[in-house]
Design a protein around this nucleic acid. Structure first.
Lengths: 252, 252
DNA sequence: CAGTGGTCTAGACCACACC
DNA sequence: GTGTGGTCTAGACCACTGT
């Protein structure tokens, strides 16, 4: 009855009850597409949950769960006593556990990888501490050079406990490290990253095709599987003049 | 009946049904504390949802919601057909929309702020574009120097549309910028950050007490309220030798 | 097979915002 | 007041994992 805010919204959906995809997810996905495509304009106000559920032939909890999903992803704002409104889509996709390789592919660049080395070594104290191993335990040391459009952009150093490396050097040229780990059944769960900066050493300047004294972005990452076991320690340096990290945050 | 994994868990809780705090949240919070304190050991396996709900005198959906909350925060792993297990607590708290001021306080350091300037200026093209304004619109330019334990660590530059600044210079010395914004009713919703690095200019080296040519961490942040309106543009530089960003990610 | 979490339903009551 | 989202309940059926 009220056209106070920009406008109300009446989407039209197809819901497949026989699909293995959960109903709430079907609804959430279609609403998300409608919002991102502008079909449901920013600022629009939705009808209330009960009405929407009725329109779609769903129960309120299911409809509610779909809306909650959108809220969690920052696409709508819900307020008790007020209603649900579409937000201007300023939020980039949530930060995911992807590799630089994926990042480059997603931004349409042409990434290549040069394998510098893949060697089984004895863990020193520092690496052992980060990976929850004992000094002297076997770890694979993986060194790679990542380039975008033929120009080097990052030197990537990874340490992996011996048992997680069942792939060979050739596979690392074509696939991201995380893809290979997942493929062998490792359930990645979380990661802690530290992002910093420092001046490039002479050898690094040369390797990354940067002037002497250029600033480098550094990222150290420890990745854990869902037992809480450390799977990988990454120590990476990026040519800061050509690479930066994008992070989106949701408040609440 | 089974002691296959490390062990099963029997927590004992106090649930206040009269409290305004939701039941699921009371349960989730107490479980979280028990896990983080080690009272429920890493690797422990929970009884199933129905059993837990019965033990606590709750319905299954409510109990389920509490467990889901823990799962979302990376404290437990749930798998259909298997059960719920406590993860090694390797995940730092989720990245939040806090300021460096809060970061320093939380790590027990003694932060101070020197206000360098707070001036109303005309937005140039770049600032206007970032804040969705027109060039020439009034924006406040806020410059501050942040120090930890008396030594400068970051130079912070913020641009805010005129209407969001109702506070004075004195309040900025004692409170974070976001705190002041929230206090005047601004509903912060999301932020996009770009983290990079570059060598320090001469004046910056001096200001931040760093050697010439030192690397600086840079962070640009645009913060939006829940209408999707840009509230603030921050352009900050940090002495990289003494500051880094910590980011935790959850896969899923 | 039995046991687990994942989904869905149909109701109820409440806290909050606006009139 | 009326209308909104937030919470809670008591069931049901399903999908997946292990034996």
């Amino acid at each position: 009855m009220s056209a106070q805010s920009p406008e109300a919204v009446i989407p039209s959906f197809t819901i497949a009850r026989s699909s293995p995809v959960p109903l709430y997810f079907q609804v959430a996905t279609q609403l998300e597409q409608a919002i991102l495509s502008g079909q449901i304009p920013a600022g629009a106000r939705f009808a209330n949950e009960i009405q929407l559920a009725e329109d779609l032939g769903l129960s309120r909890p299911t409809m509610r769960r779909a809306m909650q999903h959108l809220s969690d992803n920052g696409l709508v704002v819900r307020r008790r006593g007020i209603g649900t409104r579409v937000v201007q889509p300023k939020v980039r996709r949530k930060l995911e556990l992807t590799s630089l390789y994926d990042d480059l592919v997603n931004t349409g660049q042409r990434p290549t990888t040069d394998l510098i080395g893949l060697d089984l070594i004895d863990a020193d104290d520092e690496v052992a501490a980060h990976l929850d191993l004992k000094a002297g335990d076997g770890v694979y040391l993986l060194k790679r050079l990542r380039s975008a459009n033929g120009r080097p952009i990052a030197k990537m150093t990874n340490y992996l406990p011996e048992r997680y490396v069942t792939f060979g050097a050739d596979e690392l040229a074509d696939h991201g490290l995380y893809e290979l780990l997942r493929r062998q059944g490792v359930q990645l769960h979380s990661a802690n990253q530290t992002i910093g900066a420092r001046p490039a050493a002479a050898a690094e300047s040369k390797l990354l095709d940067e002037p002497r004294g250029a600033a480098l972005l550094t990222m150290q990452r420890i990745t854990y599987d869902d037992h809480g076991t450390a799977v990988e320690l990454g120590v990476h340096v990026y040519a800061a003049s050509r690479y930066s990290f994008e992070v989106s945050l949701l408040t609440s």
